[in-house]
Design a protein around this nucleic acid. Structure first.
Lengths: 190, 190
DNA sequence: ACTTACTTTCAGAATATTCTGAAAGATGAG
DNA sequence: CTCATCTTTCAGAATATTCTGAAAGTAAGT
């Protein structure tokens, strides 16, 4: 018997993890590179990665750069070797925290900023500056603002929760999650 | 003054929500249709949507179908009208629950199934059936399996937590989240 | 300063996704 | 049953994303 089974299992993992790329909001190749680094546990250089995943140098370079930006892969150096090596975070919770952190920064924060702007666009707000407005229109605008407020409130909770989870003190939240998932609260019965 | 400001605010919201499409794992147009239904609060028919978003009939039809599949838009009927109307869930938390539910079903569950399969592919497991294996290889396989286990454990927690959140009993989790986000635990200082 | 070893960039090619519009498929009224 | 109205489907067009590979960039060694 040989190491084939291990290689095959790795390849399968890489493929599966690659399919999850959409869930994390990264490209397929990025996910595959990360999968390779994670599942082997090794620090690999660009050529290793190119060869194993059969991708171009450019693609490997860009994917690694993005993974570094996301903070889920690190540079490593081997003494007496000029090449750069790369290794993946091995703590799955830390990986998840990094992803949450980035996605809040890239998606939730800009969204909240935009929602604030939109909140300042409507007639009700202008009314306070003394303009007369037809009643029906003002009602519509008030409903509109209520809906915006509901959404903003939700994302503010999400953001705070995310930041809490991400922070050093946030390890407690991880434990809470683990614990919580073990307790049976009695949902709907089969 | 006119309703222009309201229309503009709606359009802006639709554009912004459309940009979040990636985050939810749905297409841009799906998100825009949902945004339109949510922010107006009205039940609209296909033609209303086509006109307002300047999209084709086919696109509108497919997007609406997908939104129905996701369970975040509902059919509605107006008496004396043969057309179908559509309206969006107005409770943001319910919307979020629906999305979590779908994404667990579409992404996490299949992933866990695959990870289980992969777990059964490696040499260590075969060793138990009496095959001899070089020591180094077995060690490598054991590390590999440990990494798989860590990942599986994480996603199992995630799945349980998600299902908890989604279930009727899960409203408690929403309150917990709201509360939790209000308490200052004292993270890193600026 | 030159060479060698490696990394990054980016225009164009390849691929994947999304959209259109017309045709086919429903459904209910008369 | 037939017409009128509304909905869905899907092949091909339009668009967006991702990948390649060669050229330009960077830096350590001599």
């Amino acid at each position: 018997m040989s190491g084939d089974a291990l290689i095959q299992a790795q390849d399968r993992f890489i493929a599966v993890w690659g399919q999850m790329s959409g869930a994390w909001g990264i490209s397929r190749t990025m996910a595959e590179v990360h999968a390779l680094l994670y599942i082997t546990g090794d620090a690999l250089c660009t050529d290793d990665i190119m060869e194993r995943l059969e991708i171009s140098r450019g693609n490997a370079s860009m994917s690694l750069r993005s993974l570094l930006d996301w903070g889920i892969v690190e540079r490593a150096h081997k003494r007496g070797d000029r090449k750069e090596y790369f290794s993946a975070e091995q703590d799955v919770w830390a990986l998840f925290r990094a992803i949450v952190r980035e996605r809040i920064a890239r998606e939730v924060d800009p969204l909240l900023a935009s929602l604030h702007e939109i909140r300042d666009m409507t007639p009700t707000d202008r009314a306070r500056r003394g303009e007369a407005i037809p009643e029906a229109l003002r009602d519509a605008a008030e409903d509109h603002n209520k809906r915006l407020d509901n959404m903003m409130e939700f994302f503010q909770v999400l953001e705070k929760l995310g930041n809490r989870f991400v922070s050093p003190a946030g390890r407690g939240l991880q434990m809470a999650a683990t614990l919580l998932s073990k307790i049976d609260v009695g949902g709907p019965r089969p």
